[in-house]
Design a binder for these strands. Structure first.
Lengths: 344, 344
DNA sequence: CTGAAAGCGCTAACAT
DNA sequence: ATGTTAGCGCTTTCAG
């Protein structure tokens, strides 16, 4: 048996497809008799009818589909975010995930492609500078984890600044003065901000920070990288590694272990995102909780507002530092030489 | 500027939309002059044109869209699988992820809904018994991690039987005789098979296995559960917990730690899937590698075959046991009383 | 309360 | 080599 269409249902009931559409979408308030309604529902059930979302999208001014663009759904940050988003949007909207195909990120082309479809809304998670530059909003759009200020485009952001400051101060309190920041090689404001805020706070506190980068936020890449550099870091007096993403920190943990460097005794390690798995690592990871799920939910609510009222406020969701075992007191000559700065 | 349609492009170039369609889809082999082709490409670029996938799907007999249904994209098993799938399918097909909305799983309704769309293929990951019962293939369909034998529906499976046997034998070799199997409360063949194979092997080896379940494969749920039961398990002579999914094992690790039970000294813990994070846990998790990514890739290839030749073979991908630190020698009276069985 | 008709943007026969 | 036409399945005015 082929898939039933609204026509099939209409034929069976003996009514127009208009009635089918109205009833199936629950828009039959005093426009379809209860009797007809019941018969339609019966037929829908009997024929196993479900509306074709493509046709619906094409025809309707309210396609009730929103697209989420994210760099890589394998990063649990984005899958949590997606979950939060659907929490806020289901069942009125269905959410379509689109991931990047260009080196684990999405570019302007992916955005264009998505925008060519008829959708109710568009959500861009961690958009790159290239995406932002070429972005021409074509309908309700929400940005997540982006500092861009585009007229009519609300943003939902974690408090990167506050969290990064907390992290830097945490490290300073532990006596860390020589820090390596392991960035991900991506032109994104969020990473720029994480890095510069920490650098500023560290510098103010009398520390120094050097920046290094890995190509992508991926455990294996970071593992190789850290394994090659861990001993070097320790040898040159570096006592802490701040990673731009928890996945990178996971790699550093693995790489350090492979290189025989003890965390946190010889090297403190921290990340960003507080993924679910960060409580499980060995040692458990000190990280910044951006609350991906809540960010997704907030974005969903914001999109709803935007769709329904045409307006929406920006939201900043609170972040918080989660201190676990991967950061500890800095044990270096420098730290020992200035014990007065050590308030743990 | 509104989103450009093929008509806009055609108008600008001064040709028909047919030509646009042909060129944009690269189906212009001796059907469009190089000159026209070039002008079309220019206009496409100038107008930032991208075809509307909904319209394309509706109109075309080759919509080049495939849908992947999976229970919960937050389980890294499925996001890896998705990644493997797109590896095999891109850029010829775009893959749409559909996740469950019924208690973190998808049901027959979700399948129907997806089938109502015009797609080139459908991939069902870890389908439940309910889904399988009511499944009426409507086009190329591939099942992943499912024992169902439906005519014309190829399956891509991990070698559950082999892997589960290996795991059971591993535990027996370590001296474990009293084992708790922590299942996920889902009617799925894959879980049934994991459980029964291990039970059979354990029983044959002189052990006993009791089954318990958590509602869903989720770290937090399993943590609470394990925290409440860990001491009880140890007290009653249970020396090993086999979890139906790595996520559950993560929870058990956390719960055991919270309850003050040492892994693996007092309790060995193992899982299924060998997620990327299983190498990172404390202690690192002994688990069965089903190679989600390869499964996804194989499913993609299978779907391609199915689409192109109408036929496709079932594939079984090799699994392997990954022994790490979370399983160790059983230290109980029973084990000590029969030291002869202890070959580590 | 109900139906007829006109598209949404695209592709696929069928002309030319 | 190119254009014309007729839908894909649905929603949406607009009449009744």
């Amino acid at each position: 048996m082929a898939i039933a269409t609204a026509q099939d249902v209409a034929r069976r009931v003996g009514c127009s497809t208009t009635a089918i559409s109205l009833v199936v979408n629950g828009r039959d308030a005093g426009r379809v008799s209860p009797e007809l309604r019941a018969r339609i529902l019966d037929a829908v059930d009997a024929l196993n009818y479900a509306p074709n979302a493509q046709a619906q999208g094409l025809a309707s001014s309210h396609p009730n589909q929103v697209s989420l663009l994210c760099p890589d759904i394998r990063n649990p940050f984005f899958s949590e975010l997606f979950h939060g988003l659907t929490d806020a949007l289901a069942p009125d909207f269905s959410v379509n995930i689109v991931v990047g195909t260009e080196n684990f990120d999405y570019g302007p082309a992916a955005v264009r492609q998505v925008q060519a479809n008829k959708i109710s809304g568009l959500i861009l998670a961690s958009p790159s500078a290239r995406v932002l530059e070429s972005l021409r909003p074509a309908g309700p759009t929400v940005l997540i984890d982006s500092l861009a200020v585009l007229p009519g485009v609300p943003t939902v952001n974690p408090d990167v600044r506050g969290a990064a400051t907390d992290l830097a101060e945490h490290l300073l309190r532990l006596g860390h003065r020589q820090v390596v920041y392991l960035d991900v090689d991506r032109a994104k404001e969020t990473f720029h901000l994480r890095r510069t805020v920490i650098n500023a706070a560290l510098t103010t506190g009398g520390g120094t920070m050097t920046v290094d980068r890995v190509r992508v936020a991926d455990i294996a890449t970071a593992t190789d990288y850290a394994e090659a550099h861990a001993r070097g870091w320790v040898a040159t007096g570096v006592t802490a590694i701040v990673c731009a993403d928890d996945l990178i920190a996971y790699g550093v943990l693995l790489g350090a272990a492979a290189a025989g460097v003890n965390v946190p005794a010889q090297l403190s390690v921290s990340g960003f995102n507080d993924l679910q798995f960060s409580a499980l690592t060995n040692p458990a990871l000190t990280t910044v909780d951006f609350n991906a799920r809540a960010l997704g939910t907030a974005a969903g609510r914001t999109l709803r507002e935007r769709v329904e009222t045409g307006q929406a406020d920006n939201v900043i969701w609170r972040s918080r530092l989660v201190v676990r075992a991967s950061t500890g007191v800095a044990l270096t000559h420098a730290a020992l030489a200035t014990p007065g700065t050590l308030h743990v």
